[in-house]
């Protein structure tokens, strides 16, 4: 047991290491930060929600940096694309933080976050599982290719086109900026890195090759997560350094092992696993929203 100076509670060191290691394993394997599992898990362990959100971001930063190191050696990071996504993300997260505070004051943050999780997790998860299933059956998904064609023309018709050699793309800078903005805003509100939305967005909307998607998304996630850690430290002072240290250690070790395992698997299967995981997580949010609560009242954060 170790006492957390900011969360003001003791936690079991081994449990935190195990949980963050497991989250890191998944994130290393499929290239997501894992915040969408880590943050709810911390809250479940009794860590106050603001501390869980802010501190979870530091673990996301650590695992994504560890991932980038590995991906760089494989030359699978599109830095130019990552930079554009990050610029959009920085602006988006600033707007997201403002919206976060407004929703918190209105007392509706829980609802918005739950509904967003439900829609995003189940939607993205379903898309991934379906594609993986079709791949497994040995035929490409027809509906996905129909979905791609019109989007491709939109992307190609926009101005300010730029060449992305590593992704083999020649597209407008506007879609990456827009996607970065949306992910940044969602990250700030939901306390996640956003990788699980960013990866499908890069595959389905930008049509980036799968091998550069993970490294590039980790780059954007690193930038956003680092920014959120600094902003939360200043604005809400809810980053717990001791908890962050434990999460980082468990997270990076798990991520390295996960990356090792993930490299030996087919990308389509990895995406199928992630999709199934996302859909499973979305069920929990659906459950909480629909099932009558045992206790009709909840305590809010003290300041609001």
């Amino acid at each position: 047991m170790i006492y957390l100076p900011i969360a003001e509670m003791p936690v079991a060191v081994l449990l935190i290491l195990l949980v963050s290691g497991a989250v890191g394993f998944v994130s290393g394997m499929v290239g997501v930060g894992g915040g969408f599992i880590m943050t709810p898990a911390l809250i479940f362990m009794g860590v106050p929600a603001p501390v869980a959100v802010a501190t979870g971001a530091s673990q996301i930063a650590a695992t994504s940096f560890s991932g980038i190191m590995t991906q760089t050696r494989r030359k699978s990071v599109d830095w130019r694309m990552g930079l554009l996504l990050s610029i959009g993300g920085v602006v988006g997260s600033a707007c997201g933080v403002a919206l976060f505070e407004r929703l918190l004051r209105l007392g509706q943050l829980d609802l918005i976050v739950s509904v967003l999780y439900l829609i995003l997790l189940s939607g993205v998860g379903f898309l991934m599982v379906r594609e993986s299933y079709h791949f497994w059956r040995g035929k490409p998904a027809k509906s996905v290719s129909i979905l791609r064609r019109p989007l491709k023309t939109i992307v190609h018709n926009l101005p300010f086109r730029l060449r992305f050699p590593r992704s083999g793309l020649y597209i407008s800078v506007l879609p990456p900026l827009g996607i970065g903005f949306a992910i940044g805003a969602l990250s700030a509100i939901m306390g996640i890195g956003g990788g699980f939305i960013l990866i499908p967005a890069m595959i389905y909307l930008l049509r980036m090759p799968t091998n550069v998607v993970i490294g590039t998304s980790q780059f954007q996630v690193l930038v956003i997560a680092s920014l959120i850690v600094v902003l939360q430290s200043i604005a809400t002072q809810t980053v717990d350094l001791v908890l962050a240290g434990l999460l980082m250690v468990g997270g990076v070790v798990g991520a390295q092992i996960g990356a090792r395992v993930g490299a030996g698997l087919k990308a389509e299967y990895v995406r199928g696993i992630l999709g199934a995981l996302l859909m499973a997580a979305s069920l929990k949010f659906l459950f909480d929203l629909v099932v009558p609560p045992e206790e009709a009242y909840v305590l809010g954060a003290g300041m609001w």
């Binding site: 900011i6 650590a62 980038i68 600094v230 002072q237 350094l241 240290g245 250690v249 990076v252 390295q256």
Partner: peptide
């Protein structure tokens, strides 16, 4: 830790991020 987080929060945030980078780099090496 608590004093640093309260009195020099920007430094505290940067230290946390640097620690995260160090952990990530360390693990990958």
């Amino acid at each position: 830790i608590h004093d640093l987080a309260t009195n020099m929060s920007w430094l505290y945030g940067i230290v946390t991020v640097l620690l995260a980078l160090l952990a990530g780099w360390g693990a990958s090496v």
